[in-house]
Structure formats: structure tokens, C-alpha cells
Design a protein around this nucleic acid. Sequence first.
DNA 1: ACTTACGGTAAGTCATGGCTTACGACACTG
DNA 2: CAGTGTCGTAAGCCATGACTTACCGTAAGT
Lengths: 103, 103
Amino acid sequence: MAYDTAIAALADPTRRALVERLRAGPQPVGVLADDLPISRPAVSQHLKVLSDAGLLEVEPQGARRLYRLAPRGLDELRAYLDGLWDDALSSFAARAREVAKGS
Amino acid sequence: MAYDTAIAALADPTRRALVERLRAGPQPVGVLADDLPISRPAVSQHLKVLSDAGLLEVEPQGARRLYRLAPRGLDELRAYLDGLWDDALSSFAARAREVAKGS
DNA sequence: ACTTACGGTAAGTCATGGCTTACGACACTG
DNA sequence: CAGTGTCGTAAGCCATGACTTACCGTAAGT
């Protein structure tokens, strides 16, 4: 049950916006804060949440800190959703059979 | 960008608990409320959020309403995370190559 | 028709969390 | 060793949303 922190982290639109910026590659905090309508400390707080969820990794480069996407946290979340997906499909198929029989 | 409602819905622990109950099969509201530490109206509100996100479907059966897992909302969410996963892997691989070269 | 059961909606309360400003720690440059 | 730039943390404010109780509509039973 470690996917809970990951999904909670990705539930926030601002944090998803940060993740979107990082899809192109690693970036420092200041650059991320520049094209977002919030302050730099707010960005730092969001980055901490994403890092704690295993979704980001940090690489200090001098005074700056490069954040990059990390597969770790995403892996658990995807595994959980895959399981859900299977059960949802089963439920859908069962319902389809009932309807086909004339309910 | 329709996965946002789905991920927001699944971010709540109580709603995930409801989804877990429904993995075994369709159930009416009262049964779901009985083995959860919250009131029945609260369950109704959560079920509405999950339904609006395309994660659940309703099937009225007389006075009762059966809720079941729906693949629809889950599909978009999985697709989004799959894309993220690819980019995270790329970033990870790029970083691994740099480290192998001696940073 | 009256009663009982099931469930959605309304209104109000309260905690969570996202944002701000202010401050401190650390690395580079002159 | 100042001075500057980058970033994390602390404290406080405020909106969002997850609950509650109260109420209403609807379906089935007697």
C-alpha cells in the first residue's frame, strides 16, 4: 500500500503541472517556478511531496538542485491500477452477459 | 485531460476503500456503508464523485441502487500514467548512462 | 393508503492542505 | 571575506472538501 502517497501527490493540479514540465528532462527549482503562477517556496513544497512519493529524484549541482522524474513511485501506482482495471473489466463483462441474456 | 477527475476521486482513502469493496462485485449503498466508519450520506456523496469520474456505474434495482466498477474512467488514467512511465524511464536511462561514464 | 426500507440532497461544521511572506543555510564570484 | 544567487523551512492565513444531521422522494410490503 505504497501507491497511496503517489496518487495523493498526483491529485493536485499544480503538482501535475510540475511533473509535465519534468517530462522533457531535469530542471532546477527556479526554472520550474518561473513558468508557474505560484511562488518558489510553494514549488519547493510541491517538489518535496512528489519526492516523498517516489515520483521525483534530486541531484544537487552546486547551489542548484536538479529534479527529474523517477520510475519508482510510478511503478507501484501503475501496478495497483492494473489490478483494478482487471476487476473492472470482469465486472463489465459479467454485466454484458446478463444484458445479452435479456437481463 | 479527463483523467484529472479520476485521479482526484481515487486520491481519497475512503473512496479507495469503497472501490476495494466493489472489486468483489456490485453492491448496494447500505451494504457499503455498513462496513465503513462513516454515515450513509457520506458514502452516497463519495459514490457520486466516483461515478462522475467514470469509475463506477449504477444499476437501479427497485428501491436499491447497485454500484459496480466501470472501466471507462480507469482507462484514461492508465493511459496517462503509461505515458509518464515512459518518460520517467527515459530520464532514468539517461541518468544511468551519465553515471556509467563517470558522471 | 399506511408503513417501512433505501438512498439522494441540503445546510452547516471543522480539519486538511496549498499558498503567502519571512528567514536561514549553502555554494559560487568578485 | 563580503555579496549574490539558489533553495529549503517555519509560521500563519484561507479556501476546499469530507463529515454530520435533517429532510424528501421513491419502491415494496401489509
